[in-house]
Nucleic acid binder design. Structure first.
Length: 324
DNA sequence: GGCATTTGACCTAA
DNA sequence: TTAGGTCAAATGCC
């Protein structure tokens, strides 16, 4: 069985478990067995993935047939996030990453308006959980300072899309922009689209300590399996599949941080230091945490590729770049 | 006063 | 023609 099949099988088992969670609440042995099965699936998948070349097309077939309900669940889960990152990476590899001069958001040139709708725009879309504490209406921190310049109701979307550009756009002619929109079916998730690259930290007059790069082009399909950020275990408060998917994605970080906090990054100290926690209720949920731990805490010595989502914040504070 | 946000109007790619 | 993206005046906050 290939890695993807194992992952999908594991997802099915997890979904089954989710649906029966209420019934099995008083059956720890059964719960434990189910978790073991799921762990076994993901562990097997991880083993195969670790031994495979990242660009092995067999890992992620273009059209994997799955049942609709599972697919729907996956749409909001870690697998899809991984796919998003991978696809984004692939599409970016196909284009000239250098965007200097292109799509410059020079506000004085009206003829360039809406240029971001062009297909060749340097775009990367990721999904990020809303801050659990503080103002959950704010998009997640990403180490850059943004100025909101617009908000728009989007057809077919429940929530408006907010438009941000780099605070230093004028000062450093930085073309970076981002769009933030809540997911229709998950109020606690943002879809963040980054457009253009930051040039503000490259300017000779820019702050000497540059913030980490914007969510970069991820080359490693395993990126999603790396720890993201430390934070409390965040189980879903509802039984919706989408929520579980979201929560599972958050579990990545939990397991990562709890596994000895080895470096690499991911340390989420940043968010924690900033007094921000992502996700929802901080309730213990050990069984699935174990599962996620088995899924993502491989003990891999690779560096934390998820820094792009929750990068180190030390730089930021040191640079004193936070002016929001 | 300076800066950020809001919001209606405008522009333009699809 | 429509919907997404941006502008810019008004407003609010520090």
């Amino acid at each position: 069985m290939d890695a993807l099949s194992l992952i999908l099988h594991g997802c099915r088992l997890a979904k089954d478990l989710e649906e029966r969670l209420g019934d099995l609440a008083n059956q720890p042995e059964t719960l434990s067995r189910s978790c073991d099965d799921i762990i076994h699936m993901f562990a097997g998948a991880r083993e195969r993935l670790n031994n495979a070349h990242p660009q092995d097309p067999s890992l992620f077939p273009q059209q994997q047939q799955t049942d609709p309900s599972l697919q729907e669940w996956l749409n909001y889960g870690v697998i899809t996030q991984a796919m998003d990152v991978i696809q984004s990476s692939i599409s970016m590899q196909a284009m000239d990453v250098s965007d200097s001069g292109r799509g410059s958001s020079s506000s004085s040139q009206r003829s360039h308006r809406s240029s971001s709708r062009k297909h060749d725009e340097d775009k990367r879309t990721i999904r990020l959980p809303a801050p659990q504490m503080g103002n959950t209406d704010l998009p997640p921190e990403d180490n850059y300072t943004w100025r909101k310049y617009g908000q728009k109701e989007i057809l077919g979307s429940k929530y408006p899309r907010a438009y941000y550009r780099c605070t230093h756009q004028k000062m450093y002619d930085c073309p970076a922009k981002k769009q933030v929109q809540r997911l229709d079916n998950d109020f606690y998730m943002f879809e963040v689209t980054y457009i253009g690259q930051h040039t503000c930290h490259m300017s000779s007059t820019a702050p000497s300590i540059a913030p980490p790069p914007a969510p970069p082009l991820v080359q490693d399909p395993m990126v999603i399996t790396q720890p993201m950020v430390s934070q409390p275990i965040l189980p879903p408060t509802s039984s919706s599949a989408a929520t579980l998917g979201t929560w599972l994605s958050m579990e990545v970080s939990v397991s990562g941080s709890s596994s000895g906090g080895r470096g690499g990054g991911g340390d989420a100290s940043a968010s924690s230091a900033a007094g921000i926690r992502y996700g929802r209720d901080a309730v213990e949920f050990p069984a699935v945490a174990d599962m996620a731990d088995a899924m993502f805490n491989s003990g891999s010595s690779s560096s934390n590729s998820m820094d792009f989502i929750f990068p180190h914040r030390e730089d930021k504070w040191e640079a004193g770049d936070k002016d929001n």
